[in-house]
Design a protein around this nucleic acid. Structure first.
Lengths: 342, 342
DNA sequence: TTGTACGCGTTATCAA
DNA sequence: TTGATAACGCGTACAA
C-alpha cells in the first residue's frame, strides 16, 4: 500500500542504501543523486516507517510517564511541564496511569521488558528496590519526580523547608494550636514528601518552643474526599486548632468545605494553608506553599533525555524550593476567649 | 542481552515456530512440548519484543489521543474515561496534546504516516476534510468525541437540547434578561457544540416569546481567563442581565469571579448556570448542565476498538444527553426595581 | 505435531 | 560515491 524504501530506490534508480543515506542526511552522497532521491520521495509521498526504524535502532522516540494521574491536580500540573518539554524535544508521550502504589508494580515489572519507550519518568511514585534493579538490568533510563531513590536521578522539592516555612508562617501569625493533615506516607522515609513536611513542622514547633500535640497530627489520602473526613475530626475536637496546615491543596480544600459546613469562619476563626499551588487554589484564595510543578516536569524530561543520550551518567539529586503564596485563608490568630474570672 | 525467541527455542530443544505457537496459544501443540517451552520461557525470563511483533503484525497495541488537553478540565474528565477503557482493553495510550486547532493540523497530517498507533481518538477538535481523507487513505481508524464529522464515528452530546434546557430553566425561574457567553465556534456548524448551544438558547427564547438581545450574546475562548474578560463586559453594561448562561463551567467561573469583584450577589442579584459539570463546579456550588464526560471517553474508546477490529464498519453518530444539576448559583429572578412614579 | 525458510522495512557493513 | 547484503526479532506459510 504505502511506499517503502525499496519503492523509492527503484523510482530513483538507486540502491536502498543511498535512499537511507539521504533520509538520514548521512554524508557522502552526490548532490545530483540526492536530488533524484528527494524527488522520488516527494512523488511517492514516502515516510520511513518508525517501527522498522526502531526495529534496528532499538529506539522508539517515545518516553513513558508513570503517574497516579487522576488522583491529584498536582500531577496534572507536572504533566503540563512534561508535555511541553517533550513536544520541544519532538518525542512522544506514553501515559501509564496508576491509581495506587499497588498497580504501579505491574508496570514497573512489565515496562523494562517491552521496549516501547526510550526512558521512563516516574512521578509521585516510589520505585522499590527490586524494580529499580529491573530497570537497571534492562538498561532503561529512569528519572523520578516528587520521589527519591538512590538509584535514579530524582527531582524533589525541599519539603522539610516547605513544611517548616508554612508552619513558621502560622506561628508568626500568632497561632499556637496548629493542626496538620499530612498525606499518606508510603515507602522509605528518605526525601519522602509527606514525611519531610512533618519534619519541617517539628522543626518550626521546636524553634518556637511549642509542643506538638499528637491529637492534632492527622493523616489522610492525598485527595479531597479523605481530607474532608480527617478535617471533620480535626475541627470538631474538644479544643479546636486555630490554624491548619494541609500537606496538599486538595486536602486543604476538604478543610475549607468542612469549615463551611461547621460554620467556622475562615480566616477569622481558622487559618488554613495548603501545599502545591494548584490552579484552583488561586480561585479559592487559598494560602499555600507553591511548588514549581511545571518546572519539575520540564526538568524531569530534560534530565531523562540527557540520560538517554548518555546512559552511564550517575544519578543526581536535584532539589527545588517551594514558595509561600499568601492569600486570604490565613490571618492573625483570634484572641483566646477570656477565662471567666471567679 | 535479553533473550530472543531463538534462545527459547534452543533452550527448549524445539523450533522457533513452536515457541511462537505457544506464545500466541495457537492450537496444535502437544501439551508436553508446550510445557517444555513454557519452562524455557520462564527460565530465560523471555518476553516477546513488541516492536518486532508489530513489525510483522502491523499493529502496535497503542491508540493515540489528540486533545487540547490543558485548556479545559472537560478534556481531563473525558480522558479519565479514555484511560479506564484503555486499561481494561490492555492497550497503551499515546497522548498528543495540542493547544490550538492550528497545532492539531500538524498531527493530523503526520499521524497517518507514522503507524505508531492502531487508531486515533480525537477529542474536542474538528477534523477538516483534507485530513479526514488522509486518515481514510491510510486506513487509520478514527473516532471523534465532542465533535462531529460525517467521515468518522462521532460521539456528541445533544447540545441543542442542553442549551435549550439550561435557558428554559432560567426562564422558568422568572428571568427575562439573560446573557449568554458562548465558546468560540470553529469549523462547520453541523453538530458544533458551541453553535448548538446557541440554537438551543434561541429555541427556548422563542418558545417563551422572548426576544434575543444581541448585546447579551457574547463569545469567549473556552477558558476562565477570557471568560472573565467577557463577563466583565456583560455585567457592567447599562441594563445588566439577571441571569447568565455560560457554555462551559470554566467560563462560568470567570463570571463568578467578576461578579464577586463587582459586588454582585449570586444568586440573589444574578443567576448563573454553566455547562460541563467538571469536578470543581460541585465545590463552587455551580448550577450546570452535566455532560457524561467519562462515559464519552469510554464509549469513544470502545467504538474505536470495534473499528480497529472491523475497519469497514460505517461511521456512526452517537448522541448523549446532558442533565441539569441544580445547585446554588441559580434562583428566582429578582423583582425589578419599581419605576419611580411621577 | 513440529521445524524451516521467508518476509516485514530499516540501518549498517563491506565491496566495488 | 554507491549497491548488494546481512542483521533486527518475530509470525506464518509450507514442508516434513
Amino acid at each position: 500500500m504505502t511506499a517503502t524504501i525499496h519503492d523509492v530506490a527503484r523510482a530513483a534508480g538507486v540502491g536502498i542504501g543511498t535512499v537511507s543515506r539521504v533520509i538520514n542526511n548521512s554524508p557522502g552522497v552526490k548532490a545530483a543523486t540526492r536530488e533524484k532521491v528527494l524527488a522520488a520521495i516527494a512523488q511517492l509521498n514516502y515516510k520511513p516507517d518508525p517501527i522498522a526504524r526502531s526495529m534496528v535502532s532499538k529506539r522508539t522516540g517515545a518516553i513513558g510517564v508513570v503517574v497516579p494521574f487522576f488522583t491529584r491536580p498536582f500531577n496534572n500540573e507536572v504533566l503540563r511541564g512534561v508535555e511541553a518539554a517533550l513536544a520541544r524535544a519532538g518525542r512522544e508521550l506514553l501515559l501509564y496511569n496508576v491509581e495506587t502504589q499497588e498497580q504501579s508494580r505491574r508496570y514497573f515489572s512489565e515496562l523494562p521488558m517491552r521496549r516501547k519507550v526510550d526512558g521512563l519518568l516516574v512521578i509521585s511514585l516510589m520505585v522499590e528496590e527490586p524494580f529499580a534493579h529491573g530497570f537497571q538490568q534492562a538498561g532503561l533510563p529512569v528519572v523520578l519526580v516528587d520521589r527519591y531513590s538512590p538509584y535514579f536521578t530524582s527531582l524533589v522539592v525541599d519539603n522539610i523547608e516547605g513544611g517548616y516555612r508554612a508552619v513558621k508562617y502560622l506561628i508568626e501569625k500568632g497561632h499556637r494550636r496548629i493542626g496538620f493533615i499530612n498525606g499518606l506516607i508510603e515507602g522509605n522515609f528518605k526525601f519522602n514528601p509527606a514525611y519531610d513536611r512533618l519534619i519541617g513542622l517539628h522543626r518550626a514547633f521546636g524553634e518556637a518552643g511549642l509542643q506538638v500535640d499528637p491529637e492534632l497530627m492527622l493523616t489522610s489520602e492525598w485527595n479531597r474526599q479523605d481530607g474532608k473526613r480527617v478535617a471533620f475530626k480535626l475541627l470538631s475536637c474538644r479544643e479546636r486548632p486555630t490554624a491548619v496546615f494541609a500537606a496538599s491543596d486538595v486536602q486543604a480544600i476538604g478543610v475549607l468545605e468542612v469549615a463551611r459546613a461547621l460554620n467556622i469562619a475562615i480566616p477569622e476563626e481558622l487559618s488554613l494553608i495548603g501545599y502545591d499551588g494548584i490552579e484552583i487554589s488561586e480561585l479559592l484564595g487559598l494560602t499555600t506553599m507553591q511548588q514549581p510543578m511545571q518546572q519539575m516536569g520540564e526538568w524531569g524530561v530534560e534530565k531523562l533525555i540527557d540520560l538517554i543520550d548518555n546512559p552511564h551518567a550517575p544519578p543526581e539529586l536535584i532539589r527545588l524550593q517551594a514558595t509561600l503564596v499568601e492569600r486570604t485563608t490565613t490571618a492573625a490568630a483570634p484572641r483566646p476567649v477570656e477565662q471567666q474570672a471567679p
